[in-house]
Design a protein around this nucleic acid. Structure first.
Length: 575
RNA sequence: CGGGGCGUAGCGCAGCGGUAGCGCACUUGGUUUGGGACCAAGGGGCCGUGAGUUCGAAUCUCACCGCCCCGACCA
């Protein structure tokens, strides 16, 4: 493609609305434009990237035995009512009516539709396993769309659904899909981690989230430095660092701590480490107060607490509520003398001694507090979030906590949809049996954003070759000089002939500097620069976007050098 | 839905009661041409919308709409 004829509207200034690198760069490099909050137009470069990701997904899904279908975006309310999700899904489900005032939902996901399709077509166990997927536009009326493509209201998603004869067969399919996902993200040139995720109150089943590791990620992930253990912080386990004080001290004592209501403040005052403290937090679970105790250097993990309590709703209590429960202002809550409320404690507190806690009075803390002696043994459990440096639950080596962008999720559904929707087949004994399902999603547009989050620098995007809109950026630096232009034109033809996707910056009006800046911004993996200066010595410049050095090669070696660079790039996208 | 902020040229911004501006981008001509060139001449505005206040409103008041950030929520 010649830049002079292309719609690639790069901009120098960052639009005010963009906050994170991927959003800024997608607008600046001319990949997309916004139509309304959470709705975007993909321009030629953006669309090319999407098509490449789609293609990788298609190839790997088919390789794993799945077949592509296409389902409607508008889906009848009746299907959603069958599973109860018409009521349960909430405002995020975009609801519309047709001219006959019949209700529809713009699909945020398609479990109901696919299950309906399969129950009509599925007759015999001989048809199983069946694994179907589509790549289609999804709608979620997000409370707050943000970060460009990372959280939009309309987005492109690959959603796949598997149907198996029984649990064991479904497990097998599940792991095949996990392997397919690993290949997909590797082929996209991404550094990622499949992490164990929380499956919420549904329980029983298991699920993995595929996290692209990037500092701007919305989710926290604990990963082992030595083995393959990785889990969403919501459910990550660990062996915590041990206590310092391990003997029983004297009786507890009241001490005055005016105005000191954080572990940090009181710790500084008493010259004691944070792990010597019991942090006491009040939560409201389904309307009832619950007190949670964790070590001073730890954070409460709300998901673990919520799962333990089997609560539908859990939130930190307001200052008023805290006063109601503890009769003390926030910062002075403690377990000693606290009655009439359920108390749960993180098990890492167990075996520790001489704790410091709030004194249930303003400006009072207690020292030398002992579990069991100074207050009743609480309910023990795992209620804390993993910290960097904790031991891995599998191998004991240190864990590190990082951030990730969730680009895919695999989920074993079991009978969640096939049961209420009667998706059954006849087994070899002629008996009706429900199909065991799994579902597998990949946010395609989000993957574009995640790729940029992970692969960019101060000058622009640094595309992996597999998803780059073009592979080679050919720059004609002196378009006014016919000799130079002739050479560049020839390379344009030669490189295309050699099978490369080439973006040819042949613009007459743009200066060399301008073209360099644009090339860095757009970020194609390899650029070939043809200029008068180099040509005088018979040299052409080749540069990989991810590297600093520019290679000056004789005109006769250009194709060989480009191939070398391209091979090196492809190696980074090979499973 | 709570808290905060912003709507003025395509983009980034200034102006804050009295003639609507600047930089970039765009058009034309010329000079340039290796890291976002220069000169000259142009085009482009219901100052988000609607009501008020005022002799007079981009500017003050109120309402609405849109957009962004933090929170709640969420793939």
């Amino acid at each position: 493609m010649r830049v002079s004829k292309a719609l690639i509207p790069t901009v120098k200034e960052t639009p005010q609305e963009a906050e994170i690198p991927s959003h800024k760069l997608m607008l600046r490099a001319g990949l997309m434009r916004k139509v309304a909050a959470g709705f975007y137009e993909y321009l030629p470069l953006g669309q090319k990237v999407i098509l490449k990701i789609n293609q990788i997904i298609r190839e790997e899904m088919e390789r794993a035995g799945a077949q592509e279908v296409l389902m409607p975006i508008m889906t009848p309310a009746e299907l959603w009512q069958e599973t109860g999700r018409w009521e349960k899904y909430g405002k995020e489900l975009m609801r519309v009516q047709d001219r006959h005032e019949r209700h529809f939902a713009l699909g945020p996901t398609h479990e109901e539709v696919i299950t309906d399709l399969v129950r009509r077509e599925l007759k015999s166990y001989k048809q199983l396993p069946m694994n179907l997927f589509q790549i289609a536009t999804k709608f979620r009326d997000e409370v707050r769309p943000r970060f460009g493509v990372m959280r939009s209201r309309e987005f492109l998603m690959k959603d796949g659904y598997s149907f198996d004869v029984d649990d064991a067969a479904a497990d097998k399919t599940y792991w095949i899909m996990v392997e397919a996902y690993k290949r997909i993200f590797k082929r996209c040139g991404l550094t990622f981690s499949p992490v164990e995720a929380d499956s919420g109150l549904i329980g029983g089943s298991f699920t993995h989230e595929f996290m692209v590791l990037a500092d701007t990620g919305e989710a926290a992930v604990a990963m082992c430095s030595a083995c393959d253990y990785a889990a969403n912080l919501e459910k990550a386990l660990s062996v915590p660092t041990p206590h310092t004080a391990n003997t029983v001290g004297g009786l507890f004592q009241k001490i005055s701590t005016p105005g000191k209501h954080t572990v940090e403040d009181v710790g500084a005052l008493l010259k004691l480490p944070a792990q010597q403290f019991i942090k006491t937090l009040v939560f409201i679970a389904d309307g009832k107060p619950v007190v949670v105790l964790v070590r001073g250097d730890h954070d409460v993990n709300e998901v673990k607490v919520q799962n333990h309590l089997q609560a539908a709703e859990l939130a930190l209590a307001s200052g008023d509520k805290v006063y109601e429960v503890t009769k003390a202002t926030v910062g002075f809550a403690g377990p000693v003398g606290l009655t009439g409320v359920r108390i749960i404690a993180d098990k890492t507190l167990q075996g520790g001694h001489q704790y410091v806690t709030g004194g249930l009075e303003k400006d009072i803390h207690l020292t030398n507090v002992e579990f069991g002696r100074d207050f009743a043994e609480p309910e023990w459990g795992d209620f804390r979030s993993v910290l960097s440096g904790d031991g891995c639950p599998k191998c004991g080596k240190p864990l590190k906590v990082g951030r990730g962008i969730e680009v895919g999720q695999t989920f074993k559904l079991g009978l969640k949809y096939s049961q209420p929707m009667h998706c059954v087949y006849l087994d070899e004994h002629g008996k009706d049996k429900e199909a065991v399902m799994g579902c597998y999603g990949i946010g395609v547009t989000r993957t574009v954003g995640a790729t940029i989050e992970q692969h960019h620098d101060t000058d622009g995007i640094v595309w992996p070759i597999a998803t780059a809109p073009y592979q080679i950026h050919l720059l004609l630096l002196n378009p006014a000089e016919p000799e130079v232009a002739k050479v560049a034109d020839q390379y344009y033809e030669d490189l295309k002939q050699a099978g490369y996707e080439v973006l040819y910056d042949d613009r007459m009006e743009a200066s060399a500097g301008f073209k360099f800046k644009d090339a860095d911004l757009i970020g194609l993996p390899i650029s070939v620069r043809v200029g008068a200066r180099g040509l005088k010595e018979g040299l052409i410049e080749i540069k990989r976007r991810r590297e600093k050095e520019v290679a000056k090669v004789p005109v006769s070696d250009v194709l060989a050098k480009v191939k070398e660079a391209a091979d090196a790039e492809w190696k980074l996208c090979t499973p």
